[in-house]
Design a protein around this nucleic acid. Structure first.
Lengths: 196, 196
DNA sequence: CCTACCGATCGGTAGG
DNA sequence: CCTACCGATCGGTAGG
């Protein structure tokens, strides 16, 4: 009995989080109101607070769910036995698939994380910097091994991560090409741009 | 006499627009308050309304100033006599320089245009679609002439425009590399990624 | 999960 | 350019 109750609460919260993501995409975090969210969820505003602490909690749940996935992935890839260029390609494919599959939370996390409240803001910011540093280190390594053209590694990271966030517009359009085609196109351009 | 008065009003408005851009970057359009803007400008909130109609006007002045620059540039480039790849390189260099030189308004325009009110919203959205279509047409042309790898042209446009918007993070960091170096790095990766 | 409500803050106006 | 103020809306709580 207690278990069913817990399970219900969890899925209810997940439902609210999902609706919150769409709303934050549509309006932006600040412009989205809890009353607006309540309407989408189908309850009165006050009732939301039985499932979440406050509006900020919605945002940090979304942002950290995305950040955790990134961290796990790069840790795994760093340990793999393959060329730097292959590592980058794997990372890029992961980012693309992540964007396609978890579009709403990735989009919200990318665009709205600056509205996070402390201590989440600092924590997220640090994780972000750390992730980019590790990504840049892989590129740096590839340059030293002459797999990759000489270039500024951190600029390359910026370009590639932002390029992928452009999938947003693809996702919102009526998806003229498939996710797989999209992935191949991006890899051709970005990995092609790095290769010596 | 009347002329001096007009001139003063214009520069006062420009001053307010500049401060508004920084504020919109820092907080986002919705979260930025007119009282906050007034404080930065150094007047009471009510006084702002002697120079602007309302908060929305600030945003659409910023967005259309950027959009107009883009439109003028692509019109000029379309008429030039050079290869498609050269046209794309010119366009990319223009985008990069634009981002470096007019960082604040470009950033606000990119991130906040969805908060535009009608009819500005539809107008801006159409201009944006039109611009991307023309950019894609140049790529398409390069593919037909075998200057450029086979790829989905509109995906390539998405990637490249978003890649450049990544300069944001470069601009906000302590500018480890110069603007010129940044530009060359981006061109190497993006144009290198297109070239056959 | 709801009704009823709070203090705070918002964009904007009147009038000088 | 300011003081004084407006109605609307916000996030969140009390109490059931």
């Amino acid at each position: 009995m207690g278990r069913i109750h817990t399970k219900d609460n969890t899925s209810r919260k997940d439902f609210i989080l999902k609706k919150a993501s769409s709303l934050f995409i549509e309006k932006g975090f600040k412009a989205a109101s809890m009353r607006g969210l309540a309407e989408i969820v189908g309850v009165e505003a006050a009732s939301l607070y039985n499932h979440i602490k406050n509006k900020n909690e919605l945002l940090h749940e979304i942002c950290f769910s995305v950040a955790n996935r990134y961290n796990e992935k790069i840790e795994k890839i760093e340990l793999e036995q393959c060329s730097s260029l292959e590592k980058i390609e794997k990372l890029l494919r992961f980012h693309i698939q992540n964007m396609v599959q978890h579009f709403e939370e990735v989009y919200v996390s990318d665009r709205e994380w600056k509205h996070l409240s402390e201590p989440y803001l600092s924590n997220f910011h640090n994780q972000r910097k750390n992730y980019r540093k590790r990504f840049a280190a892989i590129i740096e390594n590839g340059i030293q091994k002459k797999e990759i053209k000489k270039m500024d590694a951190s600029t390359a990271v910026l370009i590639m991560l932002h390029a992928i966030s452009g999938i947003e517009s693809w996702h919102r359009s009526k998806q003229k090409i498939s996710g797989k085609e999209l992935e191949e196109n991006i890899i051709v351009i970005l990995v092609g741009g790095l290769k010596k």
